[in-house]
């Protein structure tokens, strides 16, 4: 009986590991193949070389697109912090009717097709003459990040005891001071995780950016996408992707360990 139980356990673990291997295989392939020395995608690599890394750092166009992406993602994060977090506060404070309707609106970008929004945005911004504008792109990314701010900041606010703020007020702290000394330290983890979502969503967004970004503001995903459509896979791109994967891996481990951020996906 006990042996049978152990057998089930081992079998389950084996199946699960195989499925997780499938899930991780594209990333393993990207990282592995980025160190190959061949002109085409080779995994596992037969010989180790940094050839594609050297080439990657010499390629001005890709570096520029990477810089654009970082800039757009950084701005998206900051703008979303400034306008989404106050909105989350407002939602905890206003009436049930408003809060329900507003939450429905602010989580809608999750399930409405991005490609439809992309076409609509393109037509609308072309009419306004704003297509290709840096800040409209940032604000469009803010729209896509908003559902995560609602989820993450909303969750930390629902755990926050607003009685503490009242206590601070009654002890004579002005509202601004109460916010910075009482509220902010308590919800800081939520804000950090939400900001990470904001950055990451903007950094990896492809479909909507494809429709509305200017040709001189090409983001990294758009650049990789267009080169894949026209010329297939270029090993140089793997070098950049490896760096992105490593950064994301480190951030995910920290975020999971300290903030259990997987519950917000």
């Amino acid at each position: 009986m006990k042996q049978k139980k152990l057998l089930y356990k081992i079998l389950l673990a084996l199946v699960v590991l195989l499925i997780l291997l499938f899930l991780a295989s594209p990333m393993l392939a990207v990282v592995g193949a980025s160190f190959s020395n061949t002109k085409y995608f080779q995994f596992p690599p037969e010989s180790f070389s940094l050839r594609w890394y050297k080439e990657a750092f010499r390629n001005k166009e890709h570096i520029r697109s990477l810089m654009n992406s970082l800039k757009i993602a950084g701005c998206t994060m900051l703008v979303a912090d400034v306008i989404c977090i106050p909105a989350c506060f407002a939602l905890t404070r206003c009436g049930r009717g408003v809060s329900k309707k507003a939450s429905a609106l602010f989580s809608a970008p999750l399930f409405l097709p991005g490609i439809a929004l992309g076409v609509g945005l393109m037509l609308w911004l072309a009419k306004l003459g704003w297509r290709g504008n840096f800040w409209t792109l940032v604000l469009a990314h803010v729209v896509l990040a908003t559902p995560y701010y609602m989820r993450v900041v909303g969750a930390s606010l629902s755990e926050f005891d607003f009685g503490l703020v009242d206590a601070a007020h009654s002890l004579g702290a002005p509202p601004v001071k109460a916010f910075f000394y009482v509220t902010l330290p308590q919800i800081a983890p939520g804000i950090i995780v939400a900001s990470m979502f904001g950055f990451m969503i903007s950094f990896s967004e492809l479909v909507i950016t494809l429709f509305i970004c200017a040709s001189n503001m090409t983001t990294f995903p758009v650049r990789v996408y267009s080169s894949m459509v026209t010329e297939g896979l270029n090993p140089m791109v793997l070098a950049y992707s490896t760096i992105i994967i490593v950064v994301v891996l480190v951030v995910s481990v920290l975020a999971e360990k300290f903030a259990h951020w997987t519950r917000y996906f």
């Binding site: 295989s25 990207v30 950094f203 791109v237 992105i244 994967i245």
Partner: peptide
């Protein structure tokens, strides 16, 4: 991101 995954 979807582009890294698709690449792999």
């Amino acid at each position: 991101g979807v582009i890294t995954q698709t690449l792999g």
